[in-house]
Simulated scan of single mutants.
Amino acid sequence: MVNHNLIAPFPSTSNAPKAVLFTRMELTLILNVYGRMVAAGNWRDYGIHSGRDRAVFSIFRRASEMPLYRIIKSPAHAKRQGAWLILGMDGQILKRGQALGLVLKLFERQLLKLAN
């Protein structure tokens, strides 16, 4: 006979910390720019990281290097500085804003330079 008082219930998932993730639309926008830069020969690899406070899309020239750029989604900063941020290789903030599409325009200028 099993004593049910000794069996611990499964932990509740409602209190578990939630991870910040990219939505499908956000990933589509990022991967469109990424694909164009790969076709231009500038980027070769990427990595995605999700944490409790932010999600990061890292862009690499080569897999063994530090990321060239990091596109960061940080919802906690949405009201103050904007939820979106692009960091350069040295950690410098290159672009910050409320809308992902506007922040990704930083790379559009690079694509135009490559085309010429």
Rank of each mutant, 00 (worst) to 15 (best):
H4T: 12
A16C: 01
R61N: 09
I72V: 15
G47T: 03
V103E: 11
G97M: 03
E108V: 10
I48R: 06
F10P: 10
I59A: 02
I48S: 02
D53A: 13
N15P: 00
I71N: 07
S64L: 08
I30Q: 03
L102M: 07
L85F: 00
P11M: 01
V2N: 10
I30E: 03
L94N: 08
P17A: 03
R70N: 12
R36E: 14
V56A: 05
A83N: 03
G91E: 06
R62M: 10
G47S: 13
K113V: 08
A83K: 14
A19K: 15
D53K: 15
G51N: 06
N116P: 02
H77L: 15
L102Q: 15
Y46H: 15
L31Q: 12
W43T: 05
A78D: 15
L6Y: 11
W43H: 02
I72T: 14
T23H: 04
A16R: 14
L85I: 04
K113G: 00
G82R: 06
K95A: 13
K113W: 08
Q92P: 00
Y46Q: 09
V38T: 12
N3Y: 10
P75Y: 08
F10Q: 14
P75L: 05
K113F: 01
A19H: 05
D45F: 11
G82N: 06
K113T: 10
N3T: 07
K79G: 04
P75S: 10
H4R: 11
G51C: 05
V20D: 08
R44A: 10
L94A: 02
K79N: 13
L111T: 05
R109E: 14
D53I: 05
F57D: 03
P11N: 05
S74R: 15
S74F: 03
M25V: 08
R52W: 01
K79Q: 14
Y69V: 00
G97R: 04
N32Q: 14
N5I: 06
A99W: 04
R52S: 08
R54E: 15
M89Y: 05
A83S: 15
V56S: 08
L114E: 12
G47C: 04
P67R: 04
F57P: 02
L21D: 09
A39I: 04
E26K: 05
L100W: 06
G41S: 07
